[in-house]
Write a protein that binds this DNA or RNA. Structure first.
Lengths: 339, 339
DNA sequence: ATCGTTTGCACAATCGATTGTTGTGGATAA
DNA sequence: TTATCCACAACAATCGATTGTGCAAACGAT
């Protein structure tokens, strides 16, 4: 008298069960459900009715395993920030939700090692496409090549490294920074401090380049080392405040929402803004309108980048093509902060 | 002379190829890679070396298909808001990232129909757990029962409906609202307006209940219909402003970040805040400190809820247990807004 | 009546990995 | 010497769905 324990009540119907119920062959059931012309319509209806009645749902692992596809798109993000990422995800989801693809999401936590692990995961899951925003410790895209070799479409977005191997979707970082400075200059600001993130990011280097070249274009003396500050996570706000007071700045360029959030309190506390300086930022658009007074910015829309990247990925899958570097146009949002 | 196009360069190594290369049986390779005691260590090393050299990665569809599991957790969200969801995702990811599970994400777009579709997707993907925050049109959890029947662990979080069928993780909504009002009352505010979201949400009803009962506890007259406003997406701000001026309010309770964002401009524009009224909100904590002046709030942390829900899910999978309703403690963050 | 041609379905192989069972050579014990 | 056992791998079935092929019945044309 053994004891039998039933751990999982297997009440899940598969295609074989369904076939048995209908006295048909599984292959017939499969073809009926996918409207194969070989199956007469009466049979199709019987099969579909039974499938609905018994709540048959195909096992996608089995299906995609056989079909050598997965209908899975990986979204790989370096971290979760409040500003840019939500819009990006929204944009990606908007494009993919009705395409039959599901989104599998990974966070690299800004670690190259983890990014490599994730690449392996993507290969193991046989995903059909990868949307990736790189970690800040990633210096090249070699670790993504196995994806390409496996025939998996890869699109880099936002935090990218330009190369001839992978398509990218970004804003024109250099141009955005250049325009921001020019906008300040047009409003008679000539002493401009630039606040930037980690200089090892391509996105930072490009924005610094734009910042610098705009000075030259405007006939201003090029910014000195003291006019460009790089802020890391552990930078003390006192240090920034000293920089702010070191010169008689009349304009500030802030390269991201995180930095705007970080530095805004100092502007207010030192009574620099709006009294003495004007501010222009590059931003996703949410934070600047929440602040008081608001901040003019060049709109760097995560939503648009996400939408574009997902769309590019889908169209590349439909019709393979070469490597492109897509640039999302930016847009000046004029608010209070430049006078 | 036909033309042959090679669409996908199949350079992916599977376990059979590896076995052939090593003159071994696939089963031996499989056991070697998983350190089965039947395989001698010399063979194991040969196999592992070859696997590394040829970059062998297991096909997880095949593996999990055979093993009847998937190592996939579904995260189902009603929409993407800037305040609560990012923290929630961060919390979920923090717990799951090292557990061997991958996160597959779905957005219901606040549609019950889509939610049902997603349930089917979860079944089709044979996910091992579902973390779900319900859509605002969801009135009961019947559509989740198939998940339960299939033996899939389900945890409702934040936007939930309490029932005896599913475990939930929330804050004590009623208590949070009650405490908020009490806090205002302790600061001598006696004419309080409550700003609430869609009254069909359980979360709204609970907070309204707390709002009302706190009046009674404090000996205040219960709030009239005019003291409770429900704001939908298309509500005009003029309407709210009329309400704000209709009575001589000295306190306002705002039930969420979205509503705080929505109404804050009106408070400022009408010069009610900080001049005439005090504000207390329930918030994820980000927005209130960005506003100027800042807003005191009861911290409703998406991060904590996400972490807890994911942890509960994992522990339930390890050791199945009954239905629990977990409540995350809230915490008062005193900032400028109550005087 | 005979020979195609459809029509409609069954049969069987297959995807890649895991796992229960079987088999073999060598060492040890009887 | 023969029987027994163990270590190590090979063999084969299996998961659920898809898909190439085979084949009988039905039909039409000659």
């Amino acid at each position: 008298m053994d004891n039998y324990f039933i751990f999982v009540p297997m009440n899940r119907i598969n295609i074989k069960d369904l076939a048995k119920l209908l006295s048909l062959n599984p292959s017939t059931v499969s073809r009926a459900l996918s409207d194969h012309p070989d199956i007469k319509s009466e049979t199709k209806e019987r099969v579909k009715a039974a499938a609905a009645e018994f709540n048959y749902l195909p096992n996608l692992h089995a299906r995609y395993f056989r079909q050598k596809s997965s209908r899975l798109i990986a979204l790989v993000l370096p971290e979760f920030n409040m500003y840019f990422i939500p819009g990006l995800m929204d944009g990606v989801n908007t494009v993919l939700k009705d395409s039959g693809y599901s989104i599998i999401i990974f966070f690299s936590d800004n670690s190259l090692e983890r990014e490599k692990e994730i690449v392996n995961y993507c290969l193991s899951w046989v995903v059909e496409g990868v949307l990736i925003s790189l970690s800040e410790h990633t210096k090249n895209c070699d670790h993504l090549l196995p994806l390409k070799d496996a025939g998996i479409t890869v699109v880099l977005l936002d935090k990218v490294i330009h190369s001839q191997d992978f398509t990218t979707v970004t804003i024109d970082d250099k141009d955005a920074a250049r325009n921001a400075v020019q906008y300040l200059y047009e409003n008679k600001k000539t002493h401009i401090l630039g606040i930037f993130a980690n200089p090892s990011l391509e996105i930072t280097r490009l924005r610094v380049a734009g910042f610098t070249s705009a000075h030259l274009d405007a006939g201003l003396p090029p910014p000195g080392d003291e006019d460009i500050v790089y802020i890391y996570k552990d930078t003390k706000s006192e240090w920034l405040e000293a920089k702010l007071l070191a010169k008689n700045y009349d304009g500030v360029f802030v390269m991201s929402d995180e930095l705007l959030m970080y530095s805004y309190a100092s502007f207010r506390k030192l009574q620099l803004y709006p009294q003495k300086i004007s501010i222009v930022a590059i931003s996703d658009g949410i934070l600047p309108i929440q602040l008081y007074p608001q901040v003019s910015h060049f709109l760097h829309s995560g939503y648009e980048i996400g939408k574009k990247a997902a769309a590019v990925l889908l169209s590349t899958k439909k019709e393979p093509s070469g490597v492109f570097h897509h640039v999302i146009p930016i847009q000046l949002i004029r608010l209070d902060s430049v006078v």
